[in-house]
Structures are given as C-alpha cells and as structure tokens.
C-alpha cells in the first residue's frame, strides 16, 4: 500500500483517539484535533469553491471563451461585499432580494404541492372498504385519528377544554409516540457512528498496518 495511504490512515486513527479523549476530560489533544478539523474543513471548502465555482463558472468562461455577459451577475454578486462599510451596507439588499425572489419563485409551487397538497391528499384514505385487511383498516383509522388530534392540539384559537381538550390530549399522546420514535432512531444513529469508528480502529486500521 502506498506510503501516503498508510500515513493518512494512521493520522485518521490518531485524530479519532484525540477526539474520543474528550470523553474522559477536556485536554490539549482534543482541542488540537478540533482546531485542525475546523481549519481543514474551511480550507477544503474554500478550495472546492474556487475550483468548482469561480474557476469553472466565471474565470474560465470569462477569459477563455470571452463570455462577458457573466460580468453582470458577477457585479450583482459583488454587492455582497457592501457590508464592509456602513455607507454601502444597504447594497447587500439587492443580491439578497434577487436570490430570494428566484428561490421563492422556484420553491413555492413545488414546496406547496409536495409538502401540503400531497400530504393532505395522503390522509384522504378509506377507513372501511371491501378488500382492506384488518391491519390496513386499523392503520388507516390510526392515521386519520393521529393527524386530526395532532392538528387540534396546535389549534390555539379555542381553549383546550371539554371535547377540544380531550382530542388535544389524544394529539399529545400521538406527538409523544413520534418523539419516542425519533429518540429511538437517534440512539440507533449515534451507536452507528460509534460502530463506524470502532470498526475503523480495530478492523480496518490493523489491515492497513499489518496487511490481511
């Protein structure tokens, strides 16, 4: 295996151990690893932005293909630097307004369609129908009751008393079950990350160092 590959793997192992050392207590190894990671991330990100953004979409087309029309969006983008002086700070509003307008225009329609209309449509389901199994019927009823009661819980124009209070309480139980599911999944996610690091330290690292 190439020297740099082995060197990189050892460096990754040392960085992992340095970060894990925080679990015992804060120490210089942890802080060094943390600072190196932040510096590397920013440097790597800037490098990528330069090569894949500025160079590919601005510098090369501008100077190699003489596409001078690109100077117009560049000038608008440069207005972001207006923030450096109080007198020119208002200029930032122009690129922000353009970007917001474009993204809102693109996103509003599909966003409403995907997150509201389709989701509402998804709750319009038969509670009882010939051909549905007991499980499917139960699942559909559960879905309708869950959606309805959770929406009632977030309806604050009426006091949560009497029937409204009762339905809202059912809504809270559904929300709690949702939070419980999220917590369980979070545990699984965090354990997975630890498994990934332990597999790297105990199985992948020895393979790189000693072969096999």
């Amino acid at each position: 295996m190439a020297f740099w590959s082995v060197f990189g793997t050892i460096l990754a192992a040392l960085a992992t151990l340095a970060i894990f050392s925080f679990l015992y207590k804060d120490n210089p190894f942890y802080r060094s690893a943390e600072h190196i990671m932040i510096g590397l991330s920013v440097g790597y990100g800037l490098g990528q932005l330069w090569h894949l953004g500025f160079k590919q979409f601005l510098f090369d087309p501008l100077f190699k293909e003489a596409r001078y029309e690109l100077l117009i969006p560049t000038a608008i983008g440069m207005l972001y630097f207006g923030f450096v002086h109080p007198k020119t700070r208002w200029l930032i509003r122009i690129p922000i307004a353009i970007l917001m307008g474009i993204m809102a225009g693109f996103g509003l329609g599909p966003g409403m369609q995907a997150s509201i209309f389709k989701q509402v449509q998804g709750t319009i389901i038969p509670l009882f129908r010939y051909g549905l199994t007991v499980g499917e019927t139960f699942s559909n009823i559960l879905l309708i009751v869950g959606v309805f009661s959770a929406i009632v819980y977030f309806f604050f124009s009426w006091k949560h008393k009497g029937v409204v209070g009762g339905v809202a309480k059912v809504g809270i139980y559904f929300l709690m079950i949702g939070f419980g599911a999220s917590f369980g999944l979070t545990v699984m996610g965090r354990i997975s990350l630890l498994i990934g690091r332990i597999v790297f330290l105990f199985q992948d690292l020895p393979k790189v160092l000693f072969g096999g």
Binding site: A114, Q119, G122, G178, A181, S182, L185, T186, M188, G189, R190, S192
Partner: peptide, 11 residues
Amino acid sequence: TAVMAADYYPY
C-alpha cells in the same frame, strides 16, 4: 441517517 428517518415516512 436514523436521526432524520422519522421525518421522511410521511413522504
């Protein structure tokens, strides 16, 4: 990731 999974079941 498991942390996000619950958010995507409606879709």
